[in-house]
Nucleic acid binder design. Structure first.
Length: 187
DNA sequence: CTTATGATGTACT
DNA sequence: GTACATCATAAGG
């Protein structure tokens, strides 16, 4: 079961364990479910590519907070990116969810991404947030909260084979193999 | 198939 | 002012 201990650990470990977990987004009667196929780990201090590298700012302060909370930010003036905070409180870290594969609610995903081919619905961080209708109003959302929830993370049923590669879209810290992506044709 | 480019909020120099 | 954890489209081979 997903609990605080699942997130309150080393960010790289958490990023690997998130591969194969399912995201469930609900709005009213609607339900979208997707399997996470691609993640990246971002720490703080020692990680030059991390938003938290140079200490807290108004935008990144959630990365220093409690694990299991969403950190959503607006990037390049037009995309949202979704992260899940990791590590103990006070230690910066978050896992960027870079890609997923739809398993349920395809019609609602298509509605969020009109005119896009099925294979490209959620194969990138900005695309994934648009497909799941995730934006800044979910910034700070607690995945561990009880009661009626708009977004739920489910533990994987079966582990998926994945590989570690350098992270994408960054110019510093490229030597760290902290991107994890499902192998083969699954994604 | 590949590369180039525009859109543009936030953090930083 | 510049850089950036991007994406969709246009242009070239």
């Amino acid at each position: 079961m997903i609990d605080l201990a699942f997130f309150e650990k080393d960010t790289v470990e958490a990023a690997m364990e998130l591969i194969g977990c399912r995201l469930v987004r609900t709005f009213g009667e609607h339900r979208i479910e997707a399997v996470i196929t691609e993640t990246e780990a971002y720490k703080g201090g020692e990680d030059p590519a991390s938003h938290a590298h140079r200490g807290t700012t108004e935008r990144n302060k959630l990365m220093f907070g409690r694990a299991g909370v969403l950190y959503v930010y607006f990037s390049y003036g037009m995309h949202h990116c979704m992260n899940i905070v990791t590590e103990e409180e006070g230690v910066p870290g978050a896992v960027l969810i870079r890609g997923a594969k739809p398993v349920e609610g395809l019609e609602f995903i298509r509605r969020n991404r009109p005119g896009i081919a099925d294979k490209q619905l959620m194969n990138g961080p900005g695309k994934l947030t648009k497909a799941l209708a995730i934006d800044l109003f979910l910034n700070g959302y607690d995945l561990l909260q009880t009661g009626k929830r708009k977004l739920v993370l489910l533990e994987k049923e079966t582990p998926l084979p994945f590989e570690a590669t350098p992270r994408i879209g960054i110019s510093k810290g490229t030597e760290l193999p902290w991107r994890f992506v499902v192998k083969g044709t699954f994604a």
